[in-house]
Amino acid sequence: MEKTLNNKAWFLVLPVLVLVAFSAVIPLMTVVNYSVQDTFGNNQFFWAGTEWFQELLASSRFWAAIGRNLVFSGIILAIEVPLGILIALNMPRKGWGVPVCLVLMALPLLIPWNVVGTIWQVFGRTDIGLMGYYLNALGINYNYVQNPIDAWVTVIVMDVWHWTSLVVLLCYAGLVSIPDAFYQAAKIDGASRWAVFRYIQLPKMQRVLLIAVLLRFMDSFMIYTEPFVVTGGGPGNSTTFLSIDLVKMALGQFDLGPAAAMSLVYFLIILLLSWVFYTVMTNYDSGR
């Protein structure tokens, strides 16, 4: 089926091509264009060459933001993947509990990013927020507006709350596809719970886990809305991730050229890291 059978079929993909052109290709080209020029408004542009890129790569602010992103993605993956697997393993495989669990799991995924941000922003407030108020009432000094660690914890908990479900659902799909005979054979072989997980469930979940890790990595690396709503990048710059920094630069300071250069570098980093993840995991998969 790798050849076209009917040339008219191309017309069916035309709307998508147009859409992608407007939403991705043209903006990307614009960004490339901006990244090598300087502007002072009035539609006047001057050739800047690689100046913005050099400046960017030399700036500590940029590296700090990247560092924050990597740490954030690392923490998110380290929590969400094992937690997601754990929940998926403990979900029922038949009976009335299945639809109940699936709906519960799907719920957080249905809430828009900014709403999730708002929920946690209110939830964590020390004056009126359920969590913030009672944590302080219990003697735990919690304030995400002032304390960078609290801000981080809030953003991470929020992301875990929002996205672990995705990992759960993917892993669950992998788990239910394992035939009963495998579990029976494991029983007969006297395998422990851990051995069943290590030698049956994990290998069978590998493909979906790859997808889960990729999606969660890309998404968390590009995180913007939730921390923007909750912390606005603060306190200080403690939760200023690349995307937030980018918006600050482009819209707050209207430094179009540096912002464009940064977008491109950001884009390339995500592309590169995703590619690395993908090849490493698929090689791991086929190389054994």
Binding site: A181, F182, A185, D189, A191, A195, Y199, I200, P203, R288
Partner: peptide
């Protein structure tokens, strides 16, 4: 008891040797 199923049940990630060793090691 030992059982052979309709569809082959093997531990994909292990070698043939380790597959056979599995019930003993357990």
């Amino acid at each position: 008891i030992a059982q052979v199923f309709q569809f082959p049940v093997i531990y994909d990630t292990m070698t043939v040797y380790d597959n056979l060793a599995f019930p003993l090691r357990n």
